[in-house]
Design a protein around this nucleic acid. Sequence first.
DNA 1: TTGAAAGCGCTACCAG
DNA 2: CTGGTAGCGCTTTCAA
Lengths: 368, 368
Amino acid sequence: MRAVADKPTLATIAEAAGVSRTTVSNAYNRPDQLTPQLRRRILDVARRLGYPGPDPAGRRLRQGRAGAVGVLLTERLSYAFADSAAVAFLEGLARRCEDAAQALLLLPLARGEEGAAVVRQAAVDAFCLYSMPDVHPALDAALERRVPTVVVDAPRNDAATFVGVEDRVGARAVAEHLVALGHRRVAVIVPTLVLDGREGRVDAERLKKAAYHVDRERLEGVREGLEAAGIAWEEVAIEERANSQEAGADAARVLLTETPRPTALVATTDQLALGALRGARELGLAVPADVSVTGFDDIAEAGRSQPPLTTVRQPLVQKGAVAGDRLFALLASEPAADAVLPVELVVRASTARPRSSDSGDARGRHEG
Amino acid sequence: MRAVADKPTLATIAEAAGVSRTTVSNAYNRPDQLTPQLRRRILDVARRLGYPGPDPAGRRLRQGRAGAVGVLLTERLSYAFADSAAVAFLEGLARRCEDAAQALLLLPLARGEEGAAVVRQAAVDAFCLYSMPDVHPALDAALERRVPTVVVDAPRNDAATFVGVEDRVGARAVAEHLVALGHRRVAVIVPTLVLDGREGRVDAERLKKAAYHVDRERLEGVREGLEAAGIAWEEVAIEERANSQEAGADAARVLLTETPRPTALVATTDQLALGALRGARELGLAVPADVSVTGFDDIAEAGRSQPPLTTVRQPLVQKGAVAGDRLFALLASEPAADAVLPVELVVRASTARPRSSDSGDARGRHEG
DNA sequence: TTGAAAGCGCTACCAG
DNA sequence: CTGGTAGCGCTTTCAA
């Protein structure tokens, strides 16, 4: 007497239906290989015994394909969902996955060895690494798996196809735009540069430790744009904050209550910029009359804020779609070239000439 | 001579290192079971041979656990990422998954048999079904898997734990709020009710076909609130649109150019309501002076719009976290009771008394 | 159209 | 601390 309590398997059904395991398997996966009546009979037996269909684990092992793409997002998975840019990227990637009937395995990214273990054990055919820090155990673990891998934004790696945007070009364009308007006293707000999550003023040493390629590029772009106009980078105040609107507002409050007050705030993400807009308003400052504010990314909300945000548009959804294209090309053993997508300065109403009394930075020198 | 080109497996490494497969396995999974030197030697051999570590598929089969939770989102996966409410839900769910070191397998939801196949083949330990239509092949496929399952929002099912919110209560509160302000001519905007994606005016027949429990509940709540004030439900105009701001603006333009013009627009999602705000503005109508607008969900943007949106707050992130709690309780063979989370009417600046000339619906009768 | 045999790559168990 | 054995549940030949 066999134990009825055991979970039924293909063999259970085969025996109960008086056919071979092959036939049961075919009933599920190749309906054309057996008569409809037999198929029906087998499926009925399966239902009666509570058989949930062929166990994916067995099939996976046998077929050698997982049917899923692994995704590593920046750092904490839950943070990614609070970041419009990451979500828009996922939207694009998901479109391609839908077309290919592939699932998206989002991996939780614990710091340290544990995070690496999750990646090593992930049942995936490929990896998509989105905006990861330069060094991270999970990153190495993914690369060691030697499956087709696409890196989005960072870090660039010989073993993986790269998809990114012209971060530096965009940031420089923002700086040049402000300079052209006559701004000389510019302050910068960036998302936390290092995994320690520290917030506050960024000094040269801290800058060197910046863990994300994207942050470094955008800062470098701003620097190029300002220095080209003869503005000393060392004197530009940089505040780092968690990448949220609340934090952006806080950074703006800090920067805008310093003397001399900056005439322009360059945030390297729209989230921070939208927060800065609010922070300025809370101080009773008008944007752009009292202070100009710029962002980066052009998330949907950037075009709807009051005032609408001057920012750098990067094709977020398209970036996800391109990453998906590259991934599936790789999976099909086709070549997948790196892609660097163009950005575009979008001038809206959050930037304007500084008040004439504010232009130049002479007063700043006096008070400094 | 064995083919060197073959992908290395545990056995390959074991042979090359002159140890058993067990020992190699232990080197990866139970470092404390062998001397550091031996472990190091084995790992070196593995690296040299390009062995990417134990294949997850084999382990899965052996251990019987997948290490992932399957998620089915509404309809198209890519649409979900464009829906702030769904994204906030995912944020909450992701938090719990991180804590449990479980991955999130997002399944692409093709219509028809193909969609069901994806679900049947998904390597997961549990399912979370988020706001699915009443009938969908993938839904049945998930339930047939007989793994722990949590249904969020809909459809309620005996085989799964339910997590939802007081949709009807919230919608009724909105209607009562408007009625209390003196509104009599109210029009409604809902997301597309049926999977055919049709947009436009909703008649009684169409209403009966509504595929989503949430939509039905919210409409029912509005109806209750209006009828309690003696407003005839049959005369309330209902427009259905894709759940985007653009579509909401379009619906508002249609409704607000009809005669008599409604004095209040009730949208059953914030996305639609935010669009309606814009639609009204584009017609040169002031909110709330000329027309009141309400939403549902209280997504982040609802508090930042111009004017800030009167809406019903549902705890989106918390809903995801609770779903995760239930899921992991189920996985631990613990009881997991249904949860219906409370909602709260949040009155902001998008609602006000109608102009005195507009109050009552007498004029409407004349013109109709 | 059906069935028998042969593993896919791994880990749990138990004996040394 | 190490190794041999025995499957996990499935699909894919190939032969009948």
